[in-house]
């Protein structure tokens, strides 16, 4: 009899990782991601073309609004499209994970009330799906930059680092909203607004050097947004722009804090979900 003995007690802390099994979390997340991919383009006319079409349309929209209408200029004489699109794939990934992951628990409450799988797997599955689109968009940008600038270098380590930052920050936010929304669905109602606010506050369509507003000394407040570090990070990776300034480290710390606190929040909610959802 060498089978593992599990024990569950009313006094177990939700922080305890004794019964935490990452392999299981991953395998369930993978199954959900497969489901999402299989269902993705059911009953669409253009099907998988949308994997390419979506980032193209997003890029076109930014170009029209921010370059042609608002006439924002990239620093150091860099072409605007090259500059803005550098961080676009990471933003699309962030947006996709938050938008789809946050309501995933509420949307699957029927399964949640009947099967005891690790609940984090649901938001996590959206990361796996998002990574596929992120890969496609990144390749598109790589080719775009290569054709436009004639530069074909690729820094694997930096790319992986900034991609991980995107995932961790997005997961942190998603875990938080998913956990809270099992009790207060209000958060799902304001989710689109949250995303819009995040987009406007993040230096994606404009450079972070435009942050020199009326905030004066309190400018660090804007760096509480992890998307600043991610966006500037990807620009430094693709375009060799300067990354470091006196406030950017705040943004990197926020990536870490968001993920850890979000993880704790969803572990806490996992225990009560069936009773509250």
């Amino acid at each position: 009899m060498s089978k593992k003995i599990h024990s569950v007690s009313s006094t177990d802390s939700f922080l305890s990782l004794r019964n935490y099994d990452f392999k299981k979390v991953y395998s369930v997340a993978y199954a959900f991601a497969r489901r999402d991919l299989q269902l993705r383009y059911v009953q669409t006319r253009l099907g998988w073309f949308w994997s390419i079409g979506q980032p193209l349309l997003a890029a076109g929209l930014i170009l029209i609004v921010f370059s042609w209408i608002v006439k924002i200029q990239a620093p150091d004489g860099i072409d605007y499209s090259i500059y803005a699109f550098a961080s676009l794939p990471s933003w699309l990934l962030m947006q996709q994970i938050i938008l789809q992951g946050s309501p995933s628990l509420v949307h699957n409450q029927h399964i949640i009330s009947k099967v005891a799988f690790p609940r984090q797997a649901l938001p996590l599955s959206k990361v796996l799906v998002g990574l596929l689109d992120f890969g496609v968009a990144s390749v598109m940008y790589y080719v775009f930059r290569g054709v436009k600038l004639g530069v074909w270098d690729f820094m694997v380590f930096d790319f992986l680092f900034y991609s991980s930052c995107t995932i961790f920050a997005a997961l942190g936010v998603t875990y938080w909203i998913a956990a809270i929304s099992t009790r207060f669905r209000d958060w799902l109602a304001i989710l689109p607004l949250l995303i819009q606010g995040l987009f406007l506050l993040s230096p994606i369509a404009y450079p972070s050097s435009r942050f020199n507003s009326s905030l004066g000394e309190n400018i660090w407040v804007l760096y509480l947004n992890p998307m600043v570090a991610i966006s500037d990070g990807f620009r430094s990776l693709w375009l060799k722009t300067e990354l470091w300034n006196e406030n950017i480290y705040i943004s990197f710390i926020m990536v870490f804090l968001l993920f850890v606190s979000g993880f704790i929040a969803i572990r806490y909610a996992e225990n009560k979900m069936v009773d509250t959802l």
Partner: peptide, 21 residues
């Protein structure tokens, strides 16, 4: 089946457990 936490007490089990509700 692990869907919800007990308010008092504890239980132990050997091996894997699946519930078909």
């Amino acid at each position: 089946s692990g869907l919800t936490k007990p308010s008092t007490g504890s239980f132990k089990y050997r091996g894997s457990l699946t519930s078909l509700l």
